[in-house]
Design a protein around this nucleic acid. Structure first.
Lengths: 140, 140
DNA sequence: TTTGGTGCAAAACCTTTGCATTAGG
DNA sequence: CCTAATGCAAAGGTTTTGCACCAAA
């Protein structure tokens, strides 16, 4: 991707590298993982800059962020408006899916309760088929 | 509440105080907030004990835990099996609701994708009616 | 040139852990 | 008694921040 418009942010070498790496990684990744991937790719970017870039990019919705179970913030390039993911506990694969039913349900409930400005996050954790297969054949 | 059966855990003074405070607080609260509430109530409990108690109580599902947006782990006494909350951004009020539709949707999607052992968390953030009213009448 | 961005190291934060002491059952 | 539980302090990990320097526009 060669999207140079970062919505007001300066298109620095570091920021472009961070965005590129997040896009390439595909799976939800923490700042540390992104930093290591950058070094592995030959890019030299400070860890603080990685944090700042990820934060800024998420703020502008160039990437999507969720909280991992251990409290780490994870980022991923994400097409979507709403946040609905099915994540594999083992390999980190994240599949997106559309769940208009959830949206409808939410809106219905919200209107009954009188809530406003509602956003929602639906996260589902499971074991994907390939990981399930591996776990059946191995001890761990 | 005077539920002394902590499912295998010793009913220590500290643990009972932690559980009691979490029940009294009502809203999702972090370990630090619980600790402060304990001190305010005259109970002397170490911060580590608060963390350990909350963790243990959540493990045994005496209380429910979620991750706050800032990474803090929040706890609350919770009736429910599944994790579906509508939280007010302003006052922290959390309403529970049943969403069998979400469950059905999840199970349907899971069976199609072949995922196993799926758990899910549906969190919705909004502004509750009373807070919305206050915000309409005040500047902040 | 101007101002936002960067890098480094230190600090802030929440949370966990080692270890001697205490107290529940 | 026996062992889990506690408290303290120190360490762990992630994220933020102060400040001098650098580079995009």
């Amino acid at each position: 991707v060669q999207d140079d418009d970062l919505g007001g942010l300066r298109a620095t070498r570091q920021r472009r590298a961070v965005l590129s790496v997040v896009e390439d990684l595909g799976v939800f990744s923490g700042a540390r993982a992104v930093h290591e991937a950058l070094e592995a790719g030959g890019h030299r970017v400070g860890l603080s800059t990685v944090y700042r870039s990820l934060h800024a990019l998420a703020e502008l919705e160039f990437i999507d962020s969720i909280r991992g179970e251990d409290g780490e913030t994870l980022y991923r390039k994400c097409a979507g408006e709403s946040h609905q993911h099915l994540l594999c506990r083992h390999c980190g694969t994240a599949e997106e899916f559309s769940a208009s039913a959830v949206k409808a349900l939410m809106e219905a409930w919200v209107s009954v309760g009188g809530y406003r400005d509602v956003e929602y996050v639906l996260e589902m954790y499971g074991t994907c088929p390939s990981c399930a297969f591996e776990n059946d054949n191995r001890s761990c």
